[in-house]
Design a protein around this nucleic acid. Structure first.
Lengths: 222, 222
DNA sequence: TGGCCGGAGTTTACATGCAAACAGAAAGAT
DNA sequence: ATCTTTCTGTTTGCATGTAAACTCCGGCCA
């Protein structure tokens, strides 16, 4: 179950393409936090009319990737330390929920997939392959989320991750990878044992530690 | 802290007015789940042009109050039992988080306000005043959320409540009010004692029970 | 009578026009 | 020289035009 939903009909909606492009520009830093999202200017630079750009920007605002400034249009959102801390508090309980539900729903297949991701994570860390490490880390979490079989939860966690990614643009945060792997192993053990409460606790503890590391780093770096 | 944010500048944005109106129409049942949200038709009936209506409908879609049907436009969303159950799972942990944070942040003032709301809730129940009872119930939860001092959490819980309200349009759910008051009292006691973990547990248990009642009712009624 | 096809009517998504509101800069007054 | 004021240039938000796509209906053909 990978290449999920085959989009019905709607081939190339310009507004969607613009939206995707703007997201990309934000995450690559091409549009830094605080940058103005002028509809006419973007329309010209992207060579489309103002309508789809307007739709896309409105969507970004609603997703909290942009903010509406009084009368200067929308600007790329700046996620501060305080907001990030708030977001991590939420993420803590949501990831905990995902872990609990995963135990209640999933079978051996999940455990096997998680083990695989964890092994790759370890291997990547030994070879100091940051990209592969991050990828394995993300996959571990994603597997649990999807096993939770709660689409609304998946959506919320995706939103959370979007905010976190945006925050990374402002604040460089590197969570200690050693700790992460240990935490993941604890989560895996709990899931393997079929103890839903333990899995929830382990997942929450993991995010709680991430949050702590993150706050220390941003406090120091500020 | 009631009449919150004074809107800066933006007096009468037609799109906002239309959005509010559509929400209202959805919640009052004037627009039932499944009803088509034809932009041209709504524009004429509301006597505005298509643009603000389009913006409003797009916003409803993004907030999951409406769904995009293939090529028939948007329709008012239908929240089924399964979705509602998923939402309550999420609500459980979020309300738990709110209660925990409320204990960590709030002082006596919160306890006093909560007691007041609970008293009114009891009084309303004794006189069988359903409207007042619901109002007091909602206020109890709102007080805790706001005391959590996490704006993102407040936003998410508002979203959740929106979905629940919409679901009520389809399924008539009356949570046992007796149980609710007992649960609230337990939450209040935990908050009063300053035990954050106990408050979290109590809040979660409350939502868990609501969910159970709800599932029984919808299963029976279907 | 039943199935197929075509036309009429919607609908969306995009393009573009336009007024009002403001920001920022340049010019004028003191 | 500094402060005020006007003027220009954007910007947003709303209105409206239009093509393409699709649905639904009725009539036509077998």
């Amino acid at each position: 179950m990978v290449g999920v939903n085959e989009k019905t009909a709607t081939r190339t909606r310009v507004a969607d393409a613009v939206y995707e492009r703007l997201r990309e520009m934000i995450f690559t830093g091409e549009l830094a936090p605080g940058a103005r999202l002028s509809v006419p200017a973007l329309a010209e630079s992207l060579e489309v009319s103002r309508s789809p750009v307007r739709d896309a920007v409105l969507r970004l605002v609603q997703e909290r990737l942009a903010r509406e400034e009084p009368r200067r249009g929308a600007v790329v959102a700046r996620v501060g330390t305080a907001e990030l801390a708030s977001i991590y508090e939420i993420r803590e309980v949501l990831e905990g929920l995902a872990a609990r539900l995963a135990v209640e729903n999933a079978g051996r297949k999940l455990v096997r997939a998680l083990k695989e991701a964890l092994d790759e994570h370890e291997a990547a860390m030994r070879t100091a392959d940051l990209a592969a490490s991050t990828e394995a880390d993300l996959r571990f979490h994603r597997l649990i989320r999807e096993a939770a079989a709660n689409p609304e939860l998946v959506r919320l966690l995706d939103d959370v991750q979007t905010q976190v990614r945006l925050a990374m643009r402002t604040t460089t945060v590197t969570a200690g990878p050693r700790q992460a792997i240990d935490d993941h192993r604890a989560i895996l053990t709990a899931i393997e044992s079929g103890d839903a409460t333990a899995a929830e606790q382990a997942a929450r503890a993991h995010i709680f530690r991430l949050r702590t590391v993150l706050l220390q780093q941003t406090e120091a770096g500020e």
